[in-house]
Design a protein around this nucleic acid. Sequence first.
DNA 1: CTCTTTGCAAAGAGTTTGCAGGGTG
DNA 2: CACCCTGCAAACTCTTTGCAAAGAG
Lengths: 135, 135
Amino acid sequence: MDNRRKTSKKREAVLAALRAVEDHPTAETLYMRLKPDYPELSLGTVYRNLSVLLEEGLAATVATVDGQLRYDGRTEPHAHFICRRCRRVLDLELPDTVTPMYRAIREELGCAPEGHSLNVSGLCAACRSAGRAGN
Amino acid sequence: MDNRRKTSKKREAVLAALRAVEDHPTAETLYMRLKPDYPELSLGTVYRNLSVLLEEGLAATVATVDGQLRYDGRTEPHAHFICRRCRRVLDLELPDTVTPMYRAIREELGCAPEGHSLNVSGLCAACRSAGRAGN
DNA sequence: CTCTTTGCAAAGAGTTTGCAGGGTG
DNA sequence: CACCCTGCAAACTCTTTGCAAAGAG
């Protein structure tokens, strides 16, 4: 067996599309964005390539929102804000509270932390001002 | 329309089962645990009752692990440790770093935080000692 | 009695997978 | 030219939903 990975235009396109945007798209959103430029692209290929990118550490998952996985092209650890109204996912830049937390977990529980995800939910700024009336 | 909620043995049982355990079961796990005592129970009812309990704030969701939603009977905010090997979800007692974080989010981004979830992943203590050889 | 809850089974939705053909090294 | 990657569509899995019957107030 060979197992070496070959370069693929589609995979590069998926990664580029993921990195090009600030939002945290679903597989289907990525598919729809790429479709105009790659008319023969199929949704299955997007899923397959996303899973390869995750495996290679070039992409990450944020969370499952409304039953759909959200992907992220940024792999440095950072937190997210998930709006309960528009369902947008925003990046949060927060000071690092992780290092001491990891040490505490290791020492008190004997677990070996390797990564984490911090998602804050609520109403984003846009929805706050838009929605004074409803909700 | 009436809309008043009626008490239901099944719903109480679901909540009790959720509170009885330290783990963070899936709907199906709960179903299998309850089945011996409620032989006529159906999986759909578990799902329906879980969603009612979430709505009433009596239960919470932790995260989607391997495509299945994990539920939690504890509703005070707390963090979780998700083992990448045995897929167990453990409670973490961490000092509160949230209050200042919420304020920062509100002031810098204009978002209104309402809740959050913090999940740390890695190897749990049991898997660490068990798995010296593999993985 | 009225409205909610339930069992059952079918429908939905997101994701994965098998296969035959095309692409890359 | 060996093996990976892709399109297509079917298969899978988790969750939701419609309906008629049972249960609660």
